[in-house]
């Protein structure tokens, strides 16, 4: 559980920066440096999630993530159970 939490925290950190940059860019659409950071972090987020999902199952609903066999989306823990 500790390793899962650590990997999740890493994703939460990257994705927080992406949320923050998204809102910032919504009102500052011409900031090229911020867009560069956004695209870099979007790539990092994908890599971190690919790694997490190999061990702990899909993060995204409706085909945003691949499934293992048997169907793994249903598996606990859900976020509020961690």
């Amino acid at each position: 559980m500790k390793e899962q939490k650590d990997l999740l925290l890493h994703i939460q950190e990257i994705d927080f920066a992406l949320v923050e940059l998204t809102l910032y860019l919504d009102t500052h659409p011409d900031d090229m440096e911020a867009i560069r950071q956004f695209n870099e972090l979007a790539y990092e987020s994908r890599m971190a999630k690919r790694n997490y999902e190999e061990h702990y199952g899909p993060l995204l609903q409706y085909g945003g993530s691949y499934s293992g066999y048997p169907w793994t989306w249903n598996n606990s823990p859900w976020p509020w159970q961690i």
Binding site: K5, L8, L9, I11, Q12, D15, F16, V19, G57, P58, L59, L60, Q61, Y62, G64, W78, P79, W80, I82
Partner: peptide
């Protein structure tokens, strides 16, 4: 919308 199976920030 797509659900993502994680909290935005940890809650303990």
């Amino acid at each position: 919308w797509l659900y993502e199976k994680k909290l935005q920030y940890p809650v303990q």
